[in-house]
Simulated assay, not measured.
Amino acid sequence: MIGNKPGNGNTDRKTAPQLATEQYSELNATFYVSGGPHEYIRARLQAIIFTLTDSEEAEKILDLGLNVGPLRGQASMRMSEEARARYAQMESTVLLHHAGESLLRLWFAHKESSLCPWLAVASLTSARDFKIEAEKYANADTSHMTADDIASVFLGGRTPEEAGVAIPKESWEDSVNGFRELLRVVADQITGQANLYNAAKHGLVGIPADHGDVNLGDIRVAGGIGITYLQKKPNDPANHNSPRSWWATTSFPSLATDLFLIELIIRAIHSLWNVARRKFAGFPGELVLISHDEVLTAKAIGPIADQRPVQDLSQKLPTYTDGSGPQRFAAVELSANAIRLGPEMLRAYERISGSSNEIAFIDLPLRQADRRKPSTSGNQFFHFSPHGSSEV
């Protein structure tokens, strides 16, 4: 577990007093009474979809202007198709990272069976520790993510019977594998594309542009909208402590892959949140299943549709040659990161490509252990606590 011990929130047990466990019922009720992070992420996903749509209704909506309470604003002009495409690429890049990090942080906090997950999430303040933990999940070896842990956090129990849900065994096992692979893919995305995300988010210094077809010789290796940013990379890729040089990198993230992964992340957080909400606040809910094929297809759909084998291209910024004065430059250096789609990924893509199955919501009913009798106490720790959640 990264950060401080879940449910405590104290940085030094020798000097800080122990938090009162009686307050956890109020904190848990407050945390889970909200709709959950997946609602916010879905609203942002819908904003991307709205911006991209060619429907005439979108322009009519913008013509209505801004009307929020007493605030009134003039109509907003519809952006050009090119500007909307650039926005969608940048926003989907940022949203995928934001949503993925939220999923991982919630997973870290809930898999340890913390008494107060809100405190556990809030204690994950070290970016370095988070990255180290995320890198463990990015590896191909997922044996440390046990089926019991995955099922308990995302499905409500180690088995359908324990969770109290009506899910066939085959669908249950497939969904466990789907959630596991999604965690791995998200961790790999976050740790491998951190520089791209930072460029897109911090100061908007990642520059989106349509690059048309990018060819090496007669072979098209990339193309479409790419995001170009500057970064320092070690001269020796195998040694992160080696001297660094400036490079200009153009990444070609796939909009289709990003949006598909964001949708799967929303479903995963939806399920995790409803499981925790039932456990800690006594509310029934629903689950949303994720298949293993869906996660693999999400990674494959973009590169296959874009017909490109390269994820990003980098060029070292020119430098003067030693002792030659300002008129001579060092040789141009180029590097590229290839996209690797394994046979399992391609087979998954073939199995579900073109399908349009509706998202299935599975009832998550209250079990006897989840039922809570509202408190009639007039005492409570916090002004924001929901009525009946106090234990004092």
Rank of each mutant, 00 (worst) to 15 (best):
R105G: 04
S355Q: 12
L52Q: 10
F283G: 04
A209W: 09
A300I: 04
T228A: 07
L289Y: 01
L104S: 06
Y32I: 12
N8Y: 11
L66C: 06
A120K: 02
L341N: 05
G325K: 03
E170D: 15
L183Y: 10
L216T: 12
D312S: 12
F50A: 11
F154Y: 08
A200V: 10
L366M: 11
F384G: 03
H387A: 09
S251Y: 00
V392Y: 14
Q380P: 08
I150Y: 00
R371W: 03
L119G: 04
H110W: 09
K373Y: 10
L272W: 03
A300K: 00
G323K: 08
W247Y: 03
H110Q: 14
P326K: 11
T51E: 13
L334Y: 11
G35Q: 10
Y137E: 09
A83T: 12
V33I: 07
R308Q: 13
E391M: 14
K5R: 14
G282Q: 04
D258N: 08
A305D: 05
N177D: 06
H97V: 15
S245I: 07
P303E: 00
P253H: 03
G226A: 03
A298S: 08
G217Y: 03
N67H: 13
T250A: 00
N235F: 08
I304G: 01
L19T: 14
P17I: 03
F108E: 12
K233E: 13
S143P: 13
K279C: 15
G325Q: 05
I132F: 10
A194Y: 04
S291L: 01
Y349R: 11
A16R: 04
V33Y: 10
F283D: 07
P160S: 00
G323T: 07
I48V: 05
Y349I: 06
M145W: 07
M79Y: 07
T191K: 01
R84D: 14
L71F: 14
N239V: 13
K232W: 09
A209D: 10
E181M: 13
N241E: 07
E135F: 02
I41T: 04
R42Y: 05
L115H: 12
L366W: 03
D258A: 07
M1H: 14
D63C: 10
L296E: 02
I304H: 00
P6C: 02
F280T: 08
Q46G: 04
I48M: 03
K169P: 08
L64V: 14
A248I: 14
I227D: 02
P160R: 01
R158V: 14
R267I: 09
Y197H: 06
P303L: 01
R105F: 01
D322S: 05
R84T: 13
E350C: 09
S251I: 00
L287M: 08
A199Q: 02
E57L: 11
V33F: 08
I265T: 02
P208K: 02
